[in-house]
Simulated assay, not measured.
Amino acid sequence: MTTVVEAFAGVAAAIVERFAGRNGRVRGSSVVHAVHPERWLGEIRVPAPACRVGVAGFELDALVPTDDPVTCARCLSTGHYSTVTGNGPRQLPLWDA
């Protein structure tokens, strides 16, 4: 039998895979954010904006992956941005390779 934590971990892993090497856009916004791993429900990690802007509570589909370059000024100021354009510092990996 699968525990609740295992089920959430499976969902989180699928979402993390969608963001590999990509940036994110909060649904309904035109701003593109750098994405980094954020702890969720204990030790489970999910993609989140590097600037830590709020994203619709626990709705994991509110952050949508995109290949567009980062436009968020706060994300750009972190120095971890745009794996897509190849210019400037790189976005942090979602976990160790």
Rank of each mutant, 00 (worst) to 15 (best):
R18N: 12
E43R: 14
F19M: 08
V4E: 08
Y81M: 07
L92K: 13
T71E: 11
T66W: 04
R52Q: 02
P69N: 04
L76G: 05
G86T: 02
I15F: 06
V46H: 02
D61G: 12
H33I: 04
E6Q: 15
L94N: 06
R52V: 07
D61V: 14
W40K: 00
G79D: 05
F58H: 11
A20E: 13
P93Y: 03
V46S: 04
S77N: 12
S82M: 01
F8I: 06
R45D: 06
P47K: 11
V35Y: 09
R25D: 00
T71M: 01
D96S: 09
G21L: 06
L92P: 13
V26P: 14
H33P: 01
A34F: 03
P49V: 03
V16M: 15
L76V: 02
H33C: 00
A13H: 12
V55S: 02
A34K: 03
A7Q: 15
G21Q: 13
V5P: 08
A12K: 12
H33N: 01
V5H: 09
L63I: 07
N87D: 09
T2I: 13
T3L: 06
T2D: 10
E17F: 12
A20T: 14
A50V: 00
T66L: 05
T3G: 11
V55W: 07
D67M: 05
R25F: 01
A73N: 08
V55R: 05
T3W: 03
